[in-house]
């Protein structure tokens, strides 16, 4: 996974609420067996609307997406995170996210920043003309107009994002602990986890 420390750049002033992952990437794009190339399908339906932010040259290539409440609800498809990543998005800022989406985003090196609606409204305004600065180390979102919004993040997620760490590798380092757990359950409830032959 790539490391993520600071992200500075333009932001899509999207703002839509309850964006489900079917909107982020429609199901016919899920037929791929690769993680790449899904940016073309991102927000496909919305991009048919004239004047949508994703096809506005003013925001082309923005690394930040500003969205409304409950972003990424619905399907667990990680393709939504892959599609955003492929589009070049590294940070999504919203008042709230679905649990599954934020987990998927994080595992693909995309930072989800939760800020109150008032901050979102202000950032939407700034994004129309100016850049936004996200600092993961400091846990802040700032603008050149002295706006400064602090955000919370799970320390483990922060550590993994800053270091670009491979979570599976980290967990496999604890293989002995897993084996001990399996053994104890195999004794108490063999129907649940059979002993390994």
């Amino acid at each position: 996974m790539e490391t993520l420390t600071t992200v500075e750049g333009k932001a899509y002033p999207f703002g839509m609420k309850n964006v489900d992952t079917d909107i982020v990437i429609p199901s016919h794009w899920l037929k791929t067996i690769s993680r790449t190339g899904l940016g073309k399908g991102a927000f496909e339906v919305l991009r048919k609307e004239p004047g949508n932010v994703f096809d506005d040259p003013a925001y082309a290539g923005s690394p930040i997406l500003i969205a409304g409440d409950n972003f990424g609800c619905g399907s667990s498809r990680e393709h939504a995170a892959w599609a955003l990543g492929d589009l070049g998005i590294k940070v999504v800022i919203a008042p709230s996210f679905s649990d599954i989406f934020s987990s998927n985003a994080f595992k693909n090196g995309i930072l989800t920043v939760v800020l109150p609606q008032a901050a979102i409204d202000r950032l939407m305004e700034v994004a129309r003309t100016d850049e936004i600065h996200v600092d993961l180390e400091q846990q802040t979102v700032t603008t050149q107009f002295q706006d400064r919004f602090a955000f919370e993040i799970d320390p483990f997620r922060k550590h993994c994002l800053l270091g670009g760490l491979d979570e599976i590798g980290l967990t496999l380092g604890d293989a002995d602990g897993i084996a001990v757990y399996e053994k104890s359950v195999a004794q108490d409830r063999p129907w649940m986890i059979p002993a390994v032959a």
Binding site: S76, S103, N104, K107, E167, I168, T171, L172
Partner: peptide, 22 residues
């Protein structure tokens, strides 16, 4: 509960997930 593909890979490899209590 539903998981994303990275978590599918994590479970396949380790039979565990790193989670915070809900």
């Amino acid at each position: 509960f539903g998981i994303g593909t990275s978590e599918v890979e994590h479970v396949l490899a380790t039979q565990t997930l790193l989670l915070k209590q809900s």
